[in-house]
Design a protein around this nucleic acid. Sequence first.
DNA 1: TCCGGTGTTCGACATTGTCGACCGCCGACC
DNA 2: GGTCGGCGGTCGACAATGTCGAACACCGGA
Lengths: 254, 254
Amino acid sequence: MAGSIQSVERAAAILRLLAGGERRLGLTDVASTLGLAKGTAHGILRTLQQEGFVEQDDASGKYQLGAELLRLGNSYLDVHELRARALVWTDDLARSSGESVYLGVLHKEGVLIVHHVFRPDDSRQVLEVGAMHPLHSTALGKVLAAYDPVAHGEAVEGEREAFTPRTVTSLQGFEDVLDITRARGWAADLEETWDGVASVAAPIHDRRRVPVGAVGVTGAVERVCEDGEIRARLVAAVRDCARAVSRDLGGGRF
Amino acid sequence: MAGSIQSVERAAAILRLLAGGERRLGLTDVASTLGLAKGTAHGILRTLQQEGFVEQDDASGKYQLGAELLRLGNSYLDVHELRARALVWTDDLARSSGESVYLGVLHKEGVLIVHHVFRPDDSRQVLEVGAMHPLHSTALGKVLAAYDPVAHGEAVEGEREAFTPRTVTSLQGFEDVLDITRARGWAADLEETWDGVASVAAPIHDRRRVPVGAVGVTGAVERVCEDGEIRARLVAAVRDCARAVSRDLGGGRF
DNA sequence: TCCGGTGTTCGACATTGTCGACCGCCGACC
DNA sequence: GGTCGGCGGTCGACAATGTCGAACACCGGA
């Protein structure tokens, strides 16, 4: 019993599979992909369906994720201490900077967005809470990779995909970026993940000075940058916000 | 094998338990609440933790929901067809009505909010996607209860809690409300769920004319109402939006 | 220091989930 | 319109699997 519970592991694998494939998947697809007997896969799927984690399309019989997951994911946010403490400060940061604010934590091989404040204007924006961002190219990711040893390992060992011509992919170049980040206490992303988009981020520490997440603002490079560099006022605002949240968590006193 | 897989069922129960209790729960709490041996509960929790569905606080050893749930819940939204079709129309509705817009579907004994557009001003608002609203007192819930037989059963059989003095709790009164809803094609909530808050909602049907969800706007009673009734202009806007989304789903042509 | 509590490990037992063959159904394709 | 292939779903035998309860190591408070 030192290992894991097989059926729960398999249920999780099914959920992750359904989350990955864009559209619905059939029973046979699921079974063959995971190397399970059809009967086995069906038993797990039936249970997941009863629990609301999976839904079945009446017409095609294919499976997709269920609503209960949305509810539980929401409950996760309610319990999330960092997010709760950061709510007020990120709101202020969005207001003062005029740009959208992201709060991210390390999850698996990327940055999980746990809070997102829209840019304060009436433009159409999609909420990115729950989305994953790469570690090696975003400002949030660089901050985590620079301060969190686990994140560093993931970023160094994983593949660093080039999203734009400016993405840093070489190991040496990436380590240099992290050195700079640690030296000045914040990280930038100048069109390294999305063309025309730049961002700044700073680390958040908990009471034991352990890095637990990162805040950052993101916006069109024309607004966020000046002379090819992030505007100093924005950098200061982001770092202030990060410090405020850290202090709120009972963290460092400087 | 006609039944469900026990361990998966139990894992789901643990997740739901963790989602319910506000703060973290200890192993012993979990085991005793679900009537399991400590060792059994530990095995399931360990597996859920490896899969990222549960996290353990290093200091206290207590358990809470994990980040993977947020990611999966987000993936659910990506696949959700109704939500995808409704995105554009709800945006327009928020703009034209000047109030916040909600899109809900039936889930278990309540309305699950799958999309939420903020009121188009700079006020501080919390995103309610993933939250559950009651069936018997909200406009969205009444619409679902009026048109969806399953929702109707849940609303009638379940307990109808009085949130404000205006909440309709008696069975007869509630059925009357549903009759009115069916007769005029939309439902209202005049301070029946939250004091000072009113809302209107209309049903969305799919291509087979089956009710699949509801859209509605919600706002301060002073803005939304006139002479103790919902403003006619708002009702028309909501119903237009519901029809537009239904048509987009390939539904009814009127 | 001791105690009550925690989370965790371990091994024996039999319950439980797994497997693979079988069934009925729908849609595509001669 | 028949046939055929593939689908999702079911069933029963087998043993691998998860369950249980006792014992463990650890921590904090008394």
